[in-house]
């Protein structure tokens, strides 16, 4: 079953009198539990695609269907409520709130849903332990390394058990060793919780962790391949 499917997505930016086509008629579907990587160089349109799938941007044409619901014409408020329940996000620069501890950061998406503090703390603790940060729960972002911060970011994306998790260049700010660790963790978490993960990156190394790689160039899909030997699968078996 497809958790997300986009059809004939087209995105045109008007810069002055000039038209820039960022995406030209892209269609793709991602199945439940799939780990999918959208690979493309800078300016290929991969970020635009991610923004459209996450409801941060509206396509000029085409439809986005998530979990059977057409969300293309949702307004900002509807999207916010929809994201609360269905979408998790992992950012390149971690983007934890500096005023909060790791625990509070992880529990935050649950707070937006209006969940009781007790319940959400319990869930956040569990998730932080899953990312092996059980001993850093009360640390603030500034007291943690980049890798640790990104692990908090991963816990935050997983805590609400969304249907879909987007990761935008999740290792972009990390050194290659830490990057690998983070990727392994992210992929194993996605397998463990049977989450659908869509990673957007320019780094072919990252693509090796995904079960499916979609290459994008100049706003068009140029390939869509299964990767049966995805890294990180060994751990699960």
């Amino acid at each position: 079953m497809n958790i997300i499917s986009i059809r004939d997505i087209r995105k045109v930016y008007h810069i002055g009198t000039e038209k820039v086509v960022a995406l030209g008629r892209i269609s793709l579907s991602v199945a439940q539990g799939e780990i999918c990587c959208i690979l493309g160089t800078s300016g290929s349109g991969k970020s635009t695609l991610l923004n459209i799938m996450a409801g941060l941007e509206r396509p000029s044409r085409g439809n986005v269907v998530i979990g059977g619901t057409d969300v293309t014409r949702y307004n900002e408020k509807q999207w916010a409520l929809f994201r609360q329940k269905n979408i998790g996000f992992i950012f390149q620069s971690y983007d934890l709130l500096p005023t909060m501890t790791a625990l509070e950061n992880v529990a935050m998406p649950l707070a937006f849903r209006g969940m009781d503090k007790e319940i959400r703390t319990r869930k956040a603790v569990k998730m932080l332990r899953a990312v092996r940060l059980g001993n850093r729960m009360l640390h603030r972002p500034t007291q943690m390394s980049g890798g640790q911060q990104q692990r908090v970011g991963i816990a935050r994306a997983f805590v609400a058990r969304p249907r879909l998790i987007f990761a935008d260049e999740p290792t972009g700010n990390l050194d290659s060793k830490t990057g690998r660790e983070v990727m392994e963790l992210m992929v194993s978490m996605a397998r463990k919780y049977r989450e659908t993960l869509i990673i957007v990156t320019h780094d072919p190394e990252i693509a090796k962790y995904a079960g499916r790689v979609i290459k994008i160039h100049d706003g068009s899909k140029i390939s869509d391949e299964r990767n049966t030997e995805a890294m990180g699968t060994k751990e699960e078996s």
């Binding site: 994201r83 996000f89 500096p98």
Partner: peptide, 15 residues
């Protein structure tokens, strides 16, 4: 940026 992030994470605007 922070405001953008909490919006992306599902914080509704009136909050």
């Amino acid at each position: 940026r922070e405001i953008g992030i909490i919006k992306v994470l599902g914080c509704v605007v009136w909050n």
